[in-house]
Design a protein around this nucleic acid. Structure first.
Lengths: 192, 192
DNA sequence: GGTCTTATGTGACTTACATCACAATTTACG
DNA sequence: CGTAAATTGTGATGTAAGTCACATAAGACC
């Protein structure tokens, strides 16, 4: 399945567009390929684009003063990624986005996004819908982090994204869950 | 300052509207008053509205199986509140929204919001802008929760929202920070 | 296919915070 | 203004998870 079709399937889940409207939308995107380990966003970068994943997997992470990694999110196919704080508030990137595996992405700039939203209201609706869902997901994750113990959060992640455990090394999953790799190892083996 | 002017000041921070456009937008809202302790959203409710705070303070919280409270957010004047997961994903409320102090709010339904966004593109832009910022704030909070220790998170909150510490009992702030009220008390007294 | 790098597992020890119980202080209400 | 309720403070104790160090296994690369 090609890039255009993947995006079309994704967007038509929530809005109806004519072919001409979709063509106009698709024309805003740049198609890019990255190798495992390559960075799409470096700390300190001006962030003007967000990325829709076609294949592979990205991770968005923060490095603290001791260079300890904390993963904010993964992005599998049909997920979006950027440093959203930097993107929306127009300041330099504080997090890093790179490839856990070779990836192909479509990227769009904020200016193009706002222009096309202005021209085609259904695209505006799509982006409100998508950001609303992202916000709700983020709130659920916050809640889970504050109310569930380590084992529960691990089990919930395993149940909700089993493929993540195949795509991604466990020490990265530990970092996403906010636990040490030793703790994740212990949870993993006591649940089998 | 009256309700209409507060909302107008709020929205014109990010978009320009004609008076007629703003009138159309303002007409979508219902003006409501609540007493301290009153609930705007109960667990299990169908959620169809979100609330813009004019005065007072709200809290959004979750009760676990042991009826332990975890506060997801506060809402002071010019902040918005709802159960966003339930609102956007159309399922019953899993969290509760009530008043920490007597409050006046403007509320708008999702249907009215989407209709007015469709009619006036600038309103669509406003809501994308607002949800984008909310999403970025939520990501920052997630990051802080996972990378900073308890003292740092407490000190950051005190610096960023000093008035919250005047408006809200400390045991509620502890619940928002995800620590026990004893731990917050200890941090509070060792930082003076 | 061998070697180097990365990932994972495990045991021992440390620690930040929760919990519990009780006391003191502050706030709210009649 | 007095009393009851709510909030906050404090000491002692327990525990889940982190850290450290080392070993083993798996994966990547030449």
């Amino acid at each position: 399945m090609d890039a255009r079709q993947i995006l079309k399937d994704h967007i038509t889940k929530s809005v109806e567009l004519t072919d001409a409207q979709f063509d106009g939308f698709y024309a805003c995107f740049k198609h890019e390929s990255f190798k495992k380990g390559q960075m799409l966003i470096r700390e300190g970068d001006a962030v003007t684009r967000e990325y829709f994943v076609l294949s592979g997997c990205l991770k968005t992470y923060f490095l603290n003063d001791e260079l300890r990694m904390t993963i904010l999110q993964f992005a599998m196919p049909t997920w979006w990624a950027s440093d959203y704080d930097a993107l929306y508030n127009r300041h330099p990137a504080a997090v890093i986005v790179d490839c856990v595996a070779n990836a192909e992405v479509l990227s769009i700039s904020t200016d193009d996004r706002e222009r096309i939203c202005h021209e085609i209201e259904a695209i505006g609706h799509f982006f409100r819908w998508r950001t609303n869902r992202g916000y709700a997901a983020s709130q659920r994750r916050l809640l889970s982090l504050m109310t569930n113990d380590t084992r529960k959060r691990y089990e919930d992640l395993l149940e909700q994204y089993p493929t993540l455990f195949q795509l991604v090394p466990k020490h990265l999953i530990a970092s996403y869950l906010g636990v040490s790799r030793e703790t994740l190892s212990r949870l993993y083996h006591s649940s089998r």
